[in-house]
Nucleic acid binder design. Structure first.
Length: 561
RNA sequence: GGGGGUAUAGCUCAGCUGGAUAGAGCACCGGCCUUCUAAGCCGACGGUCCCAGGUUCGAAUCCUGGUACUCCCGCCA
């Protein structure tokens, strides 16, 4: 549609150049925008404003000349000059109604495109260490990351989702010590409680399960509790498996799926960490100082050099991070997106620097990052601190149990990742019916209800026949809906390109609003068969788009509410 | 000190890569259910788009300089 209009304008400009009404050396950048106000038509161009100076003519005069030179087209009913010199295009009824046919014919595919051209992309998100249940911050990562996967898949990318976790580091030792202490009947307030031990109640559950000899069947490991409080290694394996299973259940409840789980320990087993060190040393980007091995990341834009191998011989987390990303590159992911909490933003420069130092031909800006800001959780008017160690943080499972998966996912994905999110539990609980997700789902349920009612009244409706009656859609509310529906593919394309799923959420709210307004203003199931057919077709199109859009957010579209 | 993010209605937030009269939800006020689902609709109220400059036909949006809040800056992950 935009392309077509752009072509018409170019033709008009060529005509004006030919008749010397415009200088030949202009380089028009024709821009077509959707109008905000329907009194400004459906689409508008600012071309006369941008060319006014170069042509030495007043914008409105130039706009008039362009309008006069526009070749006739079935798409456009009329073009008007408005404001300082905009050209407003009013689409013909038939071309604006065509979107209904497109939607009903394309169904689930409406809004998808092939921009990714089947290229491989990996999205890594959540990546929580198995030291406790997932909290709200992980939930935001899960909601955003999963939506990104869906958006990328919808725009032609070959997507792999991945969850990375550390199953062997210092924090895991700390976890094991905490469970061991619980096995011995100690509490966080006892003198011999491990320093910085995990204080949460879930540690008690792990300890009891271990001592009972429970069997854990997690996605990637199967462990039985040995029951021996003295066997720290056994406790560690059991605790990791136990908490991984808990996280799997959290993700399952959140309806988030991962294609791959990647263990940090596997990097050591494969020798990938040693290889990475060797390569960095061979490339001459390292030096020894204070018994430690440093990487000169300042050569690659970092503000100071980083330790790779500590003076005690162990590696810092930085090194396996680099090894891990090299592994991603070697798996053929030319594009990788890491969705993380913004508190990790300082690792971005570091990891990219490490990859550059490897000299493997990895592009400088690789990989991409989507960083989400903190989620503040309010309860009873006060902030709940998200401290694992205090054990008082709000878990994702709590939220899902309390406000439901759909509402939680919508809430966490409906805001831009860059804005801090205040999740007010009291508000979510006391006013869960006011959550925007219900507003959208309700619109969908209404479209389904109309079909049921139609059948009850003995009327028949067939898409192919109804599409013959689309010219019956002449009400202003209907035109607004048609405009909104027509913009959906652009919304999806933009959201995917900018990695911003929340624009889809905003769009759906607007679409649902247009639908509810129309629903209240006009009855669909009227006696006039042609009008009825057309309106039900429009309703069906709305339902389809809501379904498609909610699908991108991982939110269900219920048949009835 | 360095870096990331944010600043828009009483509150929570949108604002489509510079467009026309800056929008929604919540809260408050007033209307609409005998009629396809009132989890809905209609109306009213509500603004120094943090401040100061700059860029241009045109700035909430871009640039510069400030201010405030927040997160990060370890031989933790």
């Amino acid at each position: 549609m935009k392309e077509e209009l752009s072509r018409l304008i170019h033709q008009a400009l060529d005509e004006l150049v030919k008749t010397d009404a415009l200088p030949a050396d202009i380089s028009p950048n024709v821009q077509i925008d959707r109008t905000r106000d329907s009194s400004h038509g459906d689409l508008a161009s600012n071309i006369a404003l941008t060319l006014a100076k170069a042509s030495g003519r007043k914008p409105r005069d130039l706009a008039a000349a362009i309008c006069a030179a526009l070749p006739p087209s079935d798409l456009v009913a009329r073009a008007e000059i408005a404001g300082p010199g905009f050209i407003n295009f009013f689409l013909s009824a038939s071309s604006s109604q065509a979107v209904v046919r497109n939607i009903l014919e394309q169904g689930d595919a409406f809004g998808r495109n092939a921009e990714g051209a089947g290229r491989k992309v990996q999205v890594e998100f959540v990546s929580a260490n198995p030291t406790g249940p997932l909290h709200v911050g992980h939930g935001r990562g899960a909601a955003v990351g999963d939506s990104l996967c869906r958006l990328l898949a919808a725009t032609g990318w070959d997507v792999t989702s991945e969850f990375y976790y550390n199953d062997a580091g210092a924090q895991i030792d700390n976890l094991a010590l905490s469970v061991q202490a619980r096995c011995r009947g100690l509490g966080p307030d006892d003198a011999s409680w491990p320093e910085d031990g995990y204080r949460g109640d879930y540690i008690v559950d792990v300890a009891e399960a271990y001592q009972r000899g429970d069997t854990i069947d997690a996605e990637d490991r199967h462990v039985q509790g040995a029951g021996d409080a003295g066997d720290l290694a056994a406790i560690r394996d059991f605790a990791v498996a136990y908490l991984r299973r808990e996280q799997d259940l959290d993700l399952q409840a959140f309806e988030v799926h991962f294609d791959n789980f990647f263990l940090e320990s596997s990097l050591y087993e494969k020798g990938a960490v040693e290889d990475t060190v060797a390569r960095l040393v061979a490339n001459g980007h390292t030096y020894e100082k204070d018994d430690a091995l440093w990487l000169r990341t300042t050569d690659f834009g970092d503000d100071k050099d980083r330790v790779m191998r500590k003076s005690d011989g162990g590696y810092t987390y930085f090194l396996p991070d680099v090894a891990y990303h090299l592994d991603k590159w070697q798996r053929g992911f030319e594009r990788v997106i890491n969705e993380q909490g913004a508190d990790h933003h300082s690792t971005v420069t570091r990891v990219r620097a490490g990859l550059q130092a490897l000299d493997q031909g990895i592009p400088e800006g690789w990989p991409d990052y989507v960083l989400h800001q903190m989620v503040l959780v309010m309860r009873g008017g006060a902030e709940v601190k998200l401290s694992k160690r205090a054990g008082s943080y709000v878990t994702l499972r709590d939220l899902i149990d309390e406000v439901g998966c759909d509402a939680t996912r919508y809430f966490l994905v409906a805001r831009g990742p860059g804005s801090q999110l205040t999740f007010d539990i009291d508000l979510a609980l006391s006013q869960s019916n006011d959550n925007p997700v219900y507003y959208i789902q309700y619109a969908h349920a209404r479209t389904r209800s109309v079909l049921r009612k139609l059948a009850e009244q003995g009327w028949e409706w067939h898409a192919e026949r109804a599409l013959q009656d689309l010219e019956q859609l002449g009400e202003e509310h209907e035109k607004a809906l048609l405009r909104r529906l027509d913009s959906y593919p652009e919304v999806v394309a933009t959201a995917a390109r900018d990695l911003e799923p929340h624009t889809v959420a905003n769009y759906l709210r607007d679409l649902a609003g247009d639908f509810h307004t129309w629903y209240n203003a006009h009855k669909m199931l009227v006696d006039d068969a042609a009008v009825r057919n057309a309106r039900v077709a429009l309703s069906e199109a709305v339902g389809q788009v809501i379904r498609n859009g909610l699908g991108l957010l991982g939110v269900s579209a219920p048949e009835s509410m």
